[in-house]
């Protein structure tokens, strides 16, 4: 069974035909070629496949694509404007908050959502919010520092 859905993907309106049992992860990766969306656990634990659905971080491995119909979807490909990186991405580079970077897109998107909700999070709040994003390389202390830096930078006008 297939179904047609309309989504706003990284700022662009897209009409896509999907299998009714396809996950959003499959549609974004295999259908749309957005390879920053990555599977690790397949059961919504690790956060590697995180995308923003109407601004909310969601494990795309668990969301059936038809349920995303009418939603605004952001992947990390839609975060930077041209060559200009998002302040969270810049902070990740300045703090070198990654090693293999497989988890980085999901981590960055969760951080973007956190900072939209809480512009001034404490380290404990950051850790709590990002607890659903795993980094097996263990870059966690650097990620906490990067998100704090990004929060400061966004409060100062995203400079």
């Amino acid at each position: 069974m297939e179904q047609s859905i309309t989504i706003e993907l990284n700022g662009e309106r897209r009409a896509i035909t999907v299998r009714t049992d396809a996950t959003l992860l499959e549609v974004l990766r295999d259908g749309c070629g957005l390879l920053s969306v990555r599977e690790t656990c397949g059961i919504g634990i690790c956060g590697a496949c995180t995308v923003l659905v109407d601004g909310v971080p969601v494990s795309s491995c668990l969301l059936l694509a038809p349920l995303a119909d009418g939603c605004r979807i952001t992947t990390v490909e839609g975060l930077s404007r041209g060559d200009e990186l998002h302040p969270v991405q810049r902070a990740f580079i300045e703090q070198m908050a990654f090693q293999c970077s497989y988890c980085t897109p999901g981590m960055v998107l969760s951080a973007v959502a956190l900072l939209a909700e809480h512009p001034e999070p404490s380290p404990e709040e950051i850790a709590e919010y990002l607890a659903g994003n795993l980094c097996r390389c263990g870059s966690y202390p650097r990620i906490l520092a990067a998100v704090s830096d990004a929060a400061r930078s966004l409060r100062q006008g995203g400079a």
């Binding site: 920053s36 490909e77 990186l85 980085t104």
Partner: peptide, 14 residues
């Protein structure tokens, strides 16, 4: 920073 840092934070690394 890593020489491929931008590729990594933008998800472009393959």
């Amino acid at each position: 920073p890593m020489i491929d840092a931008v590729e990594r934070v933008t998800g472009r690394i393959r």
